[in-house]
């Protein structure tokens, strides 16, 4: 399949600013942030002209990211916790009051006062109340072999309207659990799943990472290994299309880790970790 043309995020930004772009997120005011794992920082970028604005230093390697209400929440892998900053980079303290083994990804539902984090190390989802410096409300799905329990959770997205959590999970193929996206209610009830297995190539996705929710039940699943984004239809469990292709050239993806659908035009932003770029596909989120 021919890959759709990808617009480059901007070479200056790539060369000067990213060493290891990991997660990307925007807040309700349209501010956009990217975590840089190796640089131990969060970079704020201007989505209108794709310019670097500022960066905040984190005391550890950073993965997970969410932004809301003038705050930026950052998963600190080295210190096993979630850190809070204001948008100008001032450190506000630890969030949630508990140790989070490996806070790989986060999402916020401001309407229902929730911050939801993947704890990749502990193989579970942590649901927090956002208020103040956060309190743990519940923990969903510890490790186990039943098909709907999390095996290797990595990414997540939240549907605030439906109060549902979508979790990317690597599965455990040796126990015949395929890579998949599992859907939970906020209370932890199991609502369904989208399997990575199927289609003519055998796999829609093999190492699922960041997720984004598009229109009409479309779920964007980044595949870190295959170097593309699978757009899955929740209702049918089938692939709508794939976006991007593996490679090192501008516009290609090498260890992509996250997707973000941004703005009125629904542009699609993808972090490509090993090419140190963020790729943008105009209106890609409309797929």
């Amino acid at each position: 399949m021919a890959a759709p043309a990808l617009a480059q995020f901007g070479r200056p930004l790539l060369v000067q600013r990213f060493e290891s772009p990991t997660r990307i997120a925007a807040d309700e005011g349209g501010r956009m942030f990217v975590t840089d794992y190796d640089r131990k920082s969060v970079v704020r970028i201007d989505p209108t002209d794709r310019r670097y604005l500022s960066s905040m230093r984190v005391d550890g390697k950073v993965t997970g990211l969410a932004a809301h209400g003038g705050r930026v929440y950052v998963g600190n892998e080295s210190l096993d916790r979630i850190d809070m900053f204001d948008v100008s980079g001032t450190y506000l303290g630890q969030f949630g009051g508990i140790s989070v083994n490996d806070p790989t990804e986060m999402a916020i539902d401001g309407e229902h006062d929730r911050l939801i984090a993947v704890d990749t190390g502990a193989k579970c989802i942590r649901v927090f109340s956002l208020e103040g410096s956060g309190t743990l409300v519940s923990t969903i799905s510890g490790p186990g072999l039943a098909n709907h329990l999390l095996q290797h959770p990595t990414g997540l997205a939240v549907d605030a309207a439906a109060q549902e959590i979508y979790v990317a999970d690597g599965g455990d193929i040796d126990n015949l659990i395929e890579p998949r996206v599992i859907i939970f209610g906020y209370d932890g009830t199991y609502h369904g799943m989208i399997s990575g297995s199927g289609g003519t190539q055998g796999y829609f996705f093999s190492k699922p990472q960041g997720l984004a929710l598009g229109e009409s039940g479309h779920v964007f699943v980044v595949d870190g290994f295959l170097g593309r984004v699978a757009v899955m239809d929740r209702a049918t469990g089938q692939e709508v299309t794939t976006i991007g292709e593996f490679g090192e050239k501008v516009g290609q993806l090498r260890l992509p880790l996250d997707v973000l659908i941004y703005g009125e035009n629904k542009d699609l932003y993808i972090t490509s970790n090993q090419t140190r770029r963020v790729e943008v596909i105009a209106e890609g989120g409309k797929k």
């Binding site: 290891s20 990991t22 997660r23 794992y37 190796d38 390697k61 993965t63 490996d102 790989t104 990804e105 990749t120 190390g121 290797h152 990595t154 990414g155 690597g170 796999y203 093999s206 190492k207 990472q209 870190g224 290994f225 295959l226 170097g227 593996f246 090498r254 260890l255 880790l257 970790n273 090993q274």
Partner: peptide, 24 residues
């Protein structure tokens, strides 16, 4: 299962990978 051996390893041992043990 796909693209490149190094990316294969990094998909678990790199940033946000499922293995707790990281390498570069």
């Amino acid at each position: 299962i796909g693209t490149n051996v190094e990316v294969l390893c990094l998909s678990c041992h790199g940033p946000a990978g499922s293995s707790p043990v990281k390498a570069k």
